[in-house]
Each structure stands twice: as C-alpha cells, then as structure tokens.
Amino acid sequence: MECVILAAGEGKRMRPLTTSRPKVMLPLANRPMIEHLMNSAIKAGITDFIFVVGYHEEAVREYFGDGSEFGANIRYAVQRSQRGTADALNAVKGLVSDDFLLLNGDMVMNAEDISGLSGAVSPCMGVFKSSHPQDYGVITTEGKRVTGIFEKTSEPKGDLINAGAYLLEPGIFGIISNLELSERGEFELTDALMEYVSTGNLTTYALSEWGDVGEPWNLLDANAAMLENLEGNIEGEVEDFVVLKGAVYLGKGSTIRSGTYIEGPCVIGENCTVGPHAYIRGATSIGDNCHVGHSSELKNSVILPDTKIPHFNYIGDSVIGSKCNFGAGSKIANLRHDKRDIMAGDRNTKRRKFGAVVGDGVLFGINSSVNPGAIIGSGAAIAPCTLVEGKISDNTKYGR
C-alpha cells in the first residue's frame, strides 16, 4: 500500500520555529516528527511513500532523499501554494494506483493503528476521543458510519475528533476536482469527505493513541512521549564523577564533563559538550553541536542544534531554536506565582508550567530574564539585564 504524507505546510502557529523549516521537520527526541510517523508506517509494513512538500521543501528532500537509508521508497509531489488540504492531496493525482493511506505529517501515531487503518475498507477516517474536542474538527457517527463532520466550535457535538488519518480510494480525486473554495479561501478535504458522508460510505477506525503537534508547546508533550521508550546508549565520552540516572542517550563525539548530573530520559546529540557541573532533568532533548556549560540547568525542554547555553543559565519547559546563544546568567521562568495557565501571546498553552518559544539565531545578553509565555522571534538580539515578556518580532533589537 502507498502512504501519502502531507508535509507542505509552513505551520504558522509554530512561528518563529518555522521561519527556516517546515513544521514537519521540527524535532521530537532529536528526529523530525515526520520521521517518527514514517517509521511507524514502516513498522506496519508500508514502504512506499509520497511526501507532499512545498514550504522549504529542500529541508525534507535533503534529509530523506529517496528513502533508501530509512528502508523506504519515497517520491515527492509539490504543492506550490498553500490552498488547503484537498489541494495538497490533489498534488498526488496520478501517482497512486489503488487504495492509499493519507496522513497529516504533524501528528504522532503508532504502528498498530496504522496497520489497523490500512486494513479497513475505504473510505475510512481515523478518529480519536479527545478531552478538548473544541480544538479540533468533530465528527458524529451511527455505529462506525460517519454522519457529520463539523469544524472547530466552542460547543462541540461530541468528543470524537478527526485525527487527520485516512484510508482513501482514487475516486477522491474526482470529488476534489469539483470542490469550491471554502469560507477560509481554501479547498478543504473535509468538504470532499462530505460527499462520502452523504452516501453513507465513510466509516471510522478508532485510534488507540494519537498526538497532535500543532502548537510549539505540543512539542514538549510529544517529545516526552517519545522519550518514554528511550533506550539509553553512550556513544560519546563520560568523564569521572558524572551521575546518570534513567535512560540517557549520548551521541558520537559528545562529552559529558565532570560534576554533571543527568536525570533521564534525555537524549543528547552528536558533538555536544555538557558540563562541567551541569544539571539536566527529564524529558529533555539536546540537538547536535550544542554546548550546555557550567552550572546551567535544563528541564523538560527541546533544544535545536548548534545552540549554546554556557554559563549559569536556567531553561525550563521551553523550545529553543538553532544557533542561539545565552549570555551568562540568562534565565527563562516557567511558572506564574498565581499558578494559572501560561498564556503565549493570545493563546492558552493549557500548561501550568511553560517557559518560552525562542526562534533561531537569538542572542541573549548577560543576565537576561524571560517571563513565562514569551515568544521571541528568530534573529532577535536581547540586551544585557533585560526583562523579556510577550511577543518579540523577528530580527528585533530588544532592550536598552
């Protein structure tokens, strides 16, 4: 069976992390999220993939190539402009020969569910029971038959959501060709699926596990879930007087220096230096070529490659872009005194503990302080002894 994975979108809600990369290339446990999805499909016995690419497509093509290094065969289709999910799917018209799987590239699924969905009768939609269905498209059913598909609403008609995973047949392309633009100015896949709903042909497959990675803070939950099954492995050097507890993965060419204390699960990439006397707490991923130095502490965070956190820094519950540099004493707070949910801009993270979203190439002057929920744009420069809060645009010089 062929598997189509949608990977063309920018992911505007992920800004500034998607300034220079598509959303699907953001890392979970130091691997692009789309790689985890593909690996689940491979475990389910699927090896033929079509990636629909568009925004910064070169990042996807350069990383995956023809798929041979991953035990897969990958072809590419291009969505030149972002005109909706149906338009993205239409890019593979003529490339699929029979029933095929369609998966959104920004989610987490296990191999068992992919196998179950691929064995269903098409057309079939993967669904999941959500504790906050108001954030998603909701479906109604009679038995396993879909009776309605509804966009996000503050008063959802149930707790069963559209998970963005489908088993479809080539006839879907004929339906797409007759679609009109939606109120959002896009060609919506859900509008095409309503054709099947109207004839009673669309059924459901209930997913046992599922994770949406639509917002920066979702990366923390998905990263922690990926690390739960981490197998510790030390491929680099660990000096004397280092304490490692739980599962710790250390990449080639990396060194953990004396006096460092690490509580797993934690993954550290290649050519990194950690310590001396650093403290890294669970559910933290550190990308390649990073430096976490003397008396710096990291907790439940995702750090992209080539970032330096070298002296007396604290980063908790945060997502940090690549090629950032934290001046000595710079710290990111992650808890409000009133214990309320952290707001990031006008969006509720629904987390009591959340630090900041920091884009690529951000420079922090010494003793900078970042308040919970800050969003700092790529290329920003923060002056020494500055309090950072709210949303900072790309390439801004902030502070005195």
Rank of each mutant, 00 (worst) to 15 (best):
D317N: 11
G148E: 15
P305V: 01
G355I: 08
I375V: 15
I74P: 09
R281M: 12
E58G: 07
S131F: 07
L168T: 11
S177L: 00
S40F: 00
I280H: 05
H277V: 05
I42T: 12
A344K: 04
K391F: 11
S177Y: 08
S81H: 12
Y196N: 04
A374T: 05
G185S: 06
L167H: 10
I309R: 06
Y398T: 07
G390V: 10
I286L: 09
H36F: 06
G269N: 10
S330W: 04
Y63R: 15
R75D: 12
N313M: 01
S378M: 07
Y249A: 13
F51M: 05
N313T: 12
L298H: 05
D87R: 02
I175W: 12
N223P: 10
E10H: 03
L387D: 14
I139W: 04
L181G: 10
F49L: 01
S296C: 06
T147N: 06
V60D: 03
H277S: 14
G316N: 03
M107F: 01
L28I: 04
K144E: 15
L244D: 02
G264N: 11
C3F: 05
L363D: 01
P305A: 07
E155Q: 14
E142D: 13
E58N: 15
L89I: 07
N367E: 13
I176H: 06
T284H: 04
E389Y: 12
L117E: 07
D288V: 09
D346C: 00
D113L: 01
G359D: 11
E231G: 01
P384W: 08
I175D: 13
S130R: 03
I280L: 11
G329T: 03
G54P: 06
G251T: 02
I256G: 01
K152F: 07
D135R: 10
T255K: 11
V238L: 10
H132M: 08
N371C: 13
K157A: 04
H36T: 00
N30F: 10
R352Q: 13
G379M: 07
G373I: 00
E209V: 14
N229F: 13
I50F: 10
F312P: 04
P22S: 05
G359M: 00
T141Y: 04
N313S: 10
E237K: 15
H36P: 04
N334S: 09
K397F: 14
A225C: 11
V358H: 09
V242Y: 08
P276I: 12
A77M: 01
L17Y: 09
G246K: 10
A225P: 06
C385V: 12
D306F: 14
G390M: 01
C324I: 10
L298E: 04
V292A: 11
I46W: 04
G119R: 15
G71S: 05
K323M: 02
A7P: 10
S301M: 01
E237T: 15
P384M: 13
V358P: 04
G54W: 00
P27Q: 08
K299T: 06
I376L: 00
C385A: 12
L363H: 11
V213D: 07
Q82P: 05
K43M: 13
G67P: 05
P384C: 06
K350W: 14
I114Q: 02
G232K: 00
Y196S: 01
I342S: 08
H56F: 13
A7I: 00
L181T: 14
S118N: 09
P170N: 15
L227E: 08
G293D: 09
I286D: 00
T273S: 11
N395P: 03
I176W: 00
F326Q: 01
T141C: 15
G365L: 08
